[in-house]
Write a protein that binds this DNA or RNA. Structure first.
Length: 105
DNA sequence: AGAGTGACTCATA
DNA sequence: CTATGAGCCACTC
């Protein structure tokens, strides 16, 4: 069991929950907003996540590639959800970041 | 304290 | 395209 007492964990939750439908975010982007340089920690936090309220399927790496270790199932499941929200894939595992990357204003 | 691990990213070759 | 090495930081043993 992963220790989720850290403040970082909550921040990741809050931020990911704010991602609107049809948008995605990268690990590096989240890490930067949370004041860290470590994108691994973001992925690690989401890996320990099992809360269905957190749309972790909207979080992808910097190339727009989906994660292979998706908590709710396979990466295929993640892809399916994104497609239903209107996020187009430019390849089998890559989303179009140019159009769907969500940036805070 | 030290070593290993990890849903990442960047630079180099 | 692949392969390494490094940086990053929390966790476990």
């Amino acid at each position: 069991m992963i220790k989720q007492n850290s403040n970082f964990f909550e921040k990741v939750y809050i931020l990911v929950k704010r991602i609107p439908e049809g948008k995605v975010m990268t690990y590096g982007q989240i890490a930067d907003i949370l004041g860290t340089k470590d994108a691994r920690k973001v992925g690690w936090s989401l890996h320990g996540n099992q809360d269905p309220k957190v749309p972790c399927h909207r979080v992808v790496n910097k190339e727009g590639k989906v994660a292979l270790n998706y908590s709710m199932g396979d990466w295929r499941e993640q892809k399916r959800k994104l497609l239903e929200e209107g996020v187009a894939f430019i390849d089998e595992m890559y989303v179009d970041l140019k159009k769907y990357l969500w940036q805070m204003r």
